[in-house]
């Protein structure tokens, strides 16, 4: 009792960002990769929206001309990295063992293994339209995928993923004739919450839109290299 009476309570102002350490590591990664002339792209979407398939299709256009590599984030298995490696593209698999998102420190650990002569580093985040949106990984471009079977109402239901992205890819557009998905409505909703979004419509099955997306990445690469020069 006597001891407790001596205790003083004190209020301490802190005002510190809970994501501060992640932001700091991400900024260091971005600086290092950008200085090396590598464009880093963080791919976000729900599970099954077609991130790995999009990367397979992109590799067919980009790989003959550029050097690309992929970091795969999944809760379990090396399956996605194996699919990318089967295309002759170097891939690293991060198995999060339950965690629903990648964090900058996970990418930081892999950094020494990333070859300096790369052009593009793609990071395929854990399939989840919520949690990955809060974590900067040091990317230059954040790209969110929305596949037509998911429905065109997703941007406003999951705003953070769309407000923090630079580009939106509406995928699986070959299915649109059999689905109640309105591409224009999805674009309009997404642009209302983020007017700066650059939008693409793709189908990995027919190849539609993949070339345009690859061109956007190539132009973005030239931009960071011009800034470096």
């Amino acid at each position: 009792m006597g001891k407790d009476e001596k205790m003083k309570t004190k209020e301490v102002m802190v005002l510190e960002d809970l994501l501060g350490s992640n932001k700091k590591i991400a900024a260091e990664i971005r600086q290092k990769l950008t200085d090396t002339g590598i464009l880093t792209i963080n791919l976000l979407s729900s599970p099954g929206a077609g991130k790995t398939t999009l990367l397979e299709s992109l590799s067919e256009i980009l790989a003959p001309e550029y050097k690309m590599a992929v970091i795969e984030g999944d809760i379990e298995t090396e399956r996605d990295a194996d699919r990318i490696r089967a295309k002759g593209i170097p891939a690293w698999q991060i198995i999060t063992g339950g965690a629903c998102h990648l964090e900058a420190k996970m990418i930081g650990k892999l950094l020494p293994e990333i070859p300096a002569d790369l052009d593009f580093l793609f990071i395929e985040n854990v399939g989840n339209l919520v949690c990955p949106a809060s974590f900067d990984l040091g990317e230059n471009i954040r790209c969110v995928l929305l596949s037509t079977p998911e429905g065109d109402d997703k941007p406003k239901k999951y705003p953070k993923a769309f407000t923090t992205s630079d580009c939106l890819v509406i995928s699986k557009t070959d299915l649109v004739s059999v689905l109640p998905f309105n591409i224009e409505r999805a674009k309009k909703e997404a642009l209302e919450i983020n007017p700066a979004l650059i939008t693409f419509t793709t189908s990995a099955q027919t190849g539609a839109g993949i070339k345009e997306l690859a061109e956007y990445f190539s132009e973005s690469l030239q931009k960071i290299r011009r800034t470096n020069a």
């Binding site: 001596k6 205790m7 003083k8 004190k10 005002l15």
Partner: peptide, 21 residues
Amino acid sequence: TNLKTLSGTELYLEKMELEID
């Protein structure tokens, strides 16, 4: 659409109350 976000993205530890000897 030329807007600036003033607040709403915070995730901050504002303050704590501590017991000190």
